[in-house]
Amino acid sequence: MSFEGSTLVDWTAFARARAELGAGFVRILGYFREDGVKSVSVIEQAMRGKSAAAMVIPAHTLKGEARQFGAEPLASLAETIEEIARDCVERQDTCEEALEHVVRLRPLFFETLNLLEREANPLVPRKSAGGFGRRPGGF
């Protein structure tokens, strides 16, 4: 499944987070990677184990961290999983209805993470409208 970067990340929210976090931005993005990988794995394990209760906290964590970086589709998917899991816990029911969402979670997480990390990487060339070292008129 492939998404356009513009639909996976709200770049305005991303820029705001980058400005607010300042020098700690790359470190916090690294924590998002670590926490996200763990959360996705725990959610998948909980799904296999049919434990709705075990899905709630990692889905909630992933939702909040994704929103911090402007990754709204990922945050919404995690929120859906969290809500289904909470409902199942309240009803003391199994969580099969979360399966289709859990299956979509890993690819969406990694595709979103790749976009965030690529944008955060200072070594990735950016499009430029000219500037220092460029000759006007294309000489």
Rank of each mutant, 00 (worst) to 15 (best):
F25Q: 08
V26C: 11
G49N: 11
L116H: 03
C88M: 05
G49K: 07
I43F: 06
G36E: 06
G137N: 07
E119G: 05
E79G: 09
Q45S: 13
F32D: 04
E20F: 06
E44C: 02
G30R: 05
I57P: 00
V102I: 04
E83R: 09
E100T: 07
K38V: 09
Y31L: 15
P58I: 06
A54D: 02
E82V: 01
W11F: 14
E90L: 12
P122W: 06
S76M: 08
T80A: 13
L21D: 07
V9L: 15
A53R: 08
F69M: 10
K127R: 14
S51A: 09
K38P: 02
K50R: 11
R118H: 15
E96Q: 07
G64A: 07
T12I: 12
S51W: 00
L77E: 07
E65M: 11
S2M: 11
A13T: 15
Q45R: 12
V89C: 04
L62V: 05
P107N: 09
V37G: 04
R91I: 00
V9M: 12
E82S: 01
G22D: 12
G130R: 06
D87T: 08
G137H: 08
F32Y: 15
L123Q: 15
A23H: 09
K63W: 03
V42Q: 10
H60L: 13
A71T: 02
V9W: 03
T94H: 06
N121M: 06
S128A: 14
E119W: 04
A71Q: 11
L62P: 01
T112D: 05
F139Y: 08
H101Y: 05
E111Y: 04
A75M: 01
V42E: 09
C95F: 00
K50V: 03
S41F: 05
V56R: 00
V102P: 01
P122K: 09
